[in-house]
Design a protein around this nucleic acid. Structure first.
Lengths: 136, 136
DNA sequence: CCGTATCCTGAACGATACTG
DNA sequence: CAGTATCGTTCAGGATACGG
């Protein structure tokens, strides 16, 4: 098992003259580590229409490795964002689903994805323009 | 300078689909690399009230290194999310500000931060419960 | 079918030193 | 003041192989 880096830096940082309340930095960072993680985001978004099995998730998310899928699911489960339900059958079946909390995150994630779809073309053009300007 | 890895994944994201259109994965990943990055997020959020100078940003964001601040600003600038304005004065002054596009991202980012503030306590409790269950 | 265990590489990041 | 250049480390994450 890899290190999971679940460190709790909710404690205040020593930085008096910050615009950001120092304690919120840790909070934001913690949330970003989950809500901003590309695999977590994709898994949450993929579960939006209902429970899915491990293999279904793997097929639904091209490019994810077994390792990262398992790791991501464990994190989400630990955070209470998804549930894992194993059915004692043959062959074995395991289903993952969003919790109520996970569903609240889904809203935010979908906003992000929506923003992506709306603006990625603009961004791409900006990048081309910027790179062209640098080439001078 | 670090590699910038500006890979080109095209195709628009049409809308919610039960399975992920493979071509949208790249798009999402690209956006996540910006909108989900902790430093980018913090910089954008810090610029919400108006333009700031390099040093101000550094003070406003505890824990960011010079290197990452510069790198993050360059990325955001390249994506057309922030502007860089240098005034030919003595001493030199450079101001960074959100573009219109950057402001649209700000909304999403603030949602994310809001979600963080609302639920991080729950998440923390879930983690404790999960860890306790594992300890058996 | 649903994972876990191990190895390994390259990218991210911080620290430090230097410049216009 | 506002960066750039370089180095060293850490670690995320892919590939692979194996177990329940």
């Amino acid at each position: 098992m890899d290190s999971v880096a679940a460190q709790d830096d909710n404690a205040a940082l020593p930085g008096p003259c910050s615009r950001w309340p120092a304690e919120s930095i840790g909070t934001i960072r913690q949330v970003m580590a989950r809500a901003g993680d590309k695999w977590s985001t994709l898994v949450v978004a993929t579960l939006q229409d209902g429970p899915l099995r491990y293999t279904d998730l793997q097929r639904a998310i091209p490019g994810i490795s077994q390792r990262m899928l398992t790791l991501t699911l464990r994190q989400l489960q630990r955070d209470g964002l998804v549930t894992r339900t194993a059915y004692a059958e043959v062959p074995p079946r395991v289903e993952y689903a969003l919790t109520a909390l996970g569903t609240t995150l889904l809203g935010v994630v979908l906003s992000l994805i929506d923003w992506a779809g709306t603006h990625h073309q603009d961004i791409h053009q900006n990048q081309i323009a910027y790179d062209a300007a640098q080439a001078d």
